[in-house]
């Protein structure tokens, strides 16, 4: 598919999708009305535009170009490229939100960014950081080493390594329990989810999820949600036992899960289907899906929640979707294989 960044982008309608309803029965359910109703009550109408119209920096990790593309969010233009060492994949705020830390897996380091100035400030050598996440209380940092099959737990205050666990195979994405006691990591190579007690580094359980589990989210309702990339499902998992309670059908290559800023809906990127599914955050019912070409991966939201900014891994672009209409209003050229993305609002 050839994409011209200057060409007008057709506004795709919300897709109908085949899904399981809350009782587990298969059914083809048109969710357009339900979704439109839900969103219309939450969001005021907004005109389509390339940028968000809101001041901010959007940080995009160009994993195969070893750069961070910094997009001026208001204008929707790349204004800066920050060099990294080799292969950055994921990024998060530090617990006090004063810095962004990104994991450069092949470069074996954390790179810290000043989000307001959009500049690198310092680096720290660590082993193969692919995905990373701080605990809710800010005491711990979990790092998944996808290539070295290791899970590392660092003390967040000084980034001292506390536990290193062999995790066969391919630890992928991370979540935390709300009390910061347990960290959960998907094991892409063995189709499992593993729960580790932070203080002791003890494995609490390891349970099968689905084919090639990737993204994971601890839902506000308490369950763990795991996107199974080798299937078209999201597993709903009991965080205490690790047992899968049910599966929700989203789209082929379900990859990662993100809550909307207001917490009312969840968005699931589907790599193979080229869609972003919308789930009700309470019952996990599928409300619909947006067309999202370019093998969608990670996403973030404009501060007002009206736009989704998502990375298009094989299109070397960031797509911007209007949440209300599903219109793809812009595709911004960044570096090769864009992966992690973070929208930092500026006052």
């Amino acid at each position: 598919m050839s994409i011209d960044p200057k060409a007008p982008v057709p506004a795709p309608s919300l897709l109908k999708c085949c899904c399981l309803d809350s009782s587990g029965r298969d059914g083809l359910i048109a969710r357009r009305t339900l979704l439109a109703t839900a969103l219309a009550t939450a969001l005021p109408a907004a005109p389509a535009r390339a940028g968000s119209g809101q001041a901010g920096h959007v940080f995009v990790l160009d994993s195969r170009d070893a750069t961070v593309s910094v997009i001026d969010a208001a204008r929707g233009e790349v204004v800066k490229r920050l060099p990294t060492l080799r292969e950055p994949h994921h990024l998060v705020y530090t617990p006090d939100r004063s810095e962004i830390v990104l994991g450069d897996s092949v470069g074996n380091e954390f790179l810290f960014l000043d989000p307001a100035r959009a500049e690198a400030t310092r680096s720290l050598r660590v082993s193969n950081p692919y995905h990373l996440m701080f605990s809710p209380d800010g005491r711990w940092l979990t790092v998944a080493s996808l290539r070295r099959h290791q899970i590392d737990l660092y003390r967040a205050a000084d980034y001292a390594l506390v536990h290193r666990l062999a995790a066969p195979r391919m630890p992928s994405h991370i979540a935390w329990s709300p009390d910061s006691r347990v960290t959960y990591v998907t094991l892409q190579g063995t189709n499992d989810l593993i729960a580790v007690e932070a203080e002791t580094g003890r494995i609490l359980w390891r349970k099968p999820t689905g084919d090639t589990p990737a993204g994971i989210l601890r839902a506000a309702t308490g369950e763990l949600l795991v996107a199974n990339m080798g299937e078209e499902t999201v597993s709903v998992i009991d965080p205490e036992s690790g047992e899968t309670m049910r599966r929700i059908r989203t789209g082929a290559g379900a990859h990662n899960i993100f809550p909307s800023p207001d917490g009312r809906v969840l968005f699931v990127t589907n790599r193979v289907a080229g869609t972003i599914s919308i789930l009700d955050a309470g019952r996990f019912a599928v409300l619909g899906a947006y067309g999202a070409p370019g093998a969608p991966d990670c996403l973030d939201f404009s501060p007002d929640g009206r736009q989704i900014w998502f990375t298009q891994r094989v299109a070397n672009r960031v797509g911007v979707l209007e949440v209300e209409t599903g219109a793809l209003v812009a595709q911004i050229r960044v570096g090769r294989s864009p992966h992690g993305i973070l929208f930092h609002a500026l006052a």
Partner: peptide, 26 residues
């Protein structure tokens, strides 16, 4: 080049990996 790669990956390689159960190597 990007357009060619995207076409091959999205429409051939990625569906093939998915069909073969090899998405871990995506």
């Amino acid at each position: 080049y990007v357009a060619l790669k995207q076409t091959i990956f999205e429409h051939a390689l990625l569906p093939a990996l998915y069909a073969l159960g090899l998405m871990a190597f995506e």
